[in-house]
Simulated assay, not measured.
Amino acid sequence: MRAIAATPALLMAALLVAGCAAGAPGADISADSTPAPDISAGPSTGIGSTASATGATGAFSATDTAWLQLTAAMAQRLLPVLDLVPTHTTDPAWRRLAAQMRTGSSANLERSRRLLAGAGAPTTNPHEGHDMPGMITADGLAALRSANGTAFHRLLAAHLRAHLAQSVRVAAAEQQGGVHPGTAAMATAVVRSGNADLARLDQLDRPPAPGRRPA
C-alpha cells in the first residue's frame, strides 16, 4: 500500500463542484470533474488563503473551514457504516478495524466541530444530502445492511477504502493550502491515521491464495 499523494487543488475541487454548490444529491461530484481555484499559491493569493475568522491560535482561511466541514460530514456518513460491523460479521480482525476507525472518526468529528466553533462557522452541515466523494450513499448503506460474512467484508472494504483514500487526499491538500495551525495539525493526524488504516485494510482485504476458495 502506497501513501496517498496530495493534489494541491483537490480540496476546493471537491467542495466547489456543481453538485455540492447547487445542493443536488446524486450529482456527478468526482473531484477531477470540475476546475478548481489553486490553493497552493501561499498566504497571499487564492481562495484557500483568504482569512475568514481568527481563533485563539490564529486565523482560519476559507480552505481551513471548508476542510473541517467536509471532514465532519465524512465522519458523520462513516459512523453508521462502522456501527453495522458487530452485527454483520464475527471476524475479530474486521471488528477490531471497525472499532479503531470508529474511535478515530468520532474524535475527528468532535475536533472538527470544536475548530469550526472557534472559526465562527455555521454549526449546520453544508454537505447534508450531498453524496460527496468518499461518502457512502443510501443505496450503499442499504446493501451493507443486507449482507453478511464474505459479501459484507467485500462491500465494507470498498466503502472503507474509498473513505480513507479521499480523507487522506483532502487532508493532504489542507496541509498544503490551509493556514490555521490547529487545523493543519489535525490534517497531519488524519493523513497519518488514514494511511495506517489503509495498510490494515489491505491486510484484511487480500485475494484468496491460488487454489483456495473464499470462505
Rank of each mutant, 00 (worst) to 15 (best):
P37A: 03
L68P: 06
G177T: 06
Q69P: 05
N125E: 11
L10V: 10
R96D: 13
T188S: 14
D202A: 15
A9R: 12
R111G: 03
A36S: 08
R192M: 08
L164T: 01
A24N: 10
A185D: 13
D197W: 14
V191I: 13
L84C: 08
H153K: 02
H153P: 00
L204C: 09
G42P: 09
A209F: 05
M1F: 11
A199W: 05
S30H: 13
S106M: 10
F152I: 06
A41V: 12
L204F: 08
L70P: 02
G58N: 03
M74Q: 15
M74P: 00
L115H: 02
P86M: 02
V17N: 14
S146W: 00
S106Y: 00
S193W: 09
A173N: 05
D205I: 04
A187G: 01
V81M: 05
M12F: 14
T65V: 15
D91P: 01
L84A: 09
L144R: 02
P8K: 03
V85M: 09
A56I: 07
A172I: 05
V168K: 06
L116N: 04
S146V: 07
G48N: 05
N125H: 08
L204V: 08
A53K: 03
R206P: 02
R111Q: 15
L109C: 03
I29D: 13
H130L: 14
D139H: 11
A138P: 04
P133R: 04
P35R: 03
G58E: 04
A36D: 01
A72G: 11
G48E: 05
A215K: 09
W67L: 08
A173I: 04
V170S: 05
A147L: 00
T63Q: 15
G182A: 09
L79S: 10
A13N: 02
G23K: 06
I47R: 07
I136H: 08
M186I: 01
A199G: 09
P8I: 00
L155W: 01
A18S: 12
L144W: 01
A187Q: 00
D131A: 13
R114Y: 04
A27P: 07
D197K: 10
L116I: 04
G19S: 13
A18N: 10
A51H: 05
H127K: 06
R212T: 15
A121T: 07
M132K: 08
H159C: 04
V191E: 12
T89Q: 01
A165W: 03
T150D: 12
T87H: 10
A119W: 00
L198G: 03
P133A: 07
V168D: 02
S167A: 13
A72K: 10
V170D: 10
I29M: 15
A138K: 14
R96P: 00
R111Y: 03
A209E: 12
G118Q: 12
V190P: 02
L115F: 06
S52D: 05
H127D: 10
P86A: 01
T45M: 12
A209R: 09
A138R: 15
R212N: 06
P122I: 07
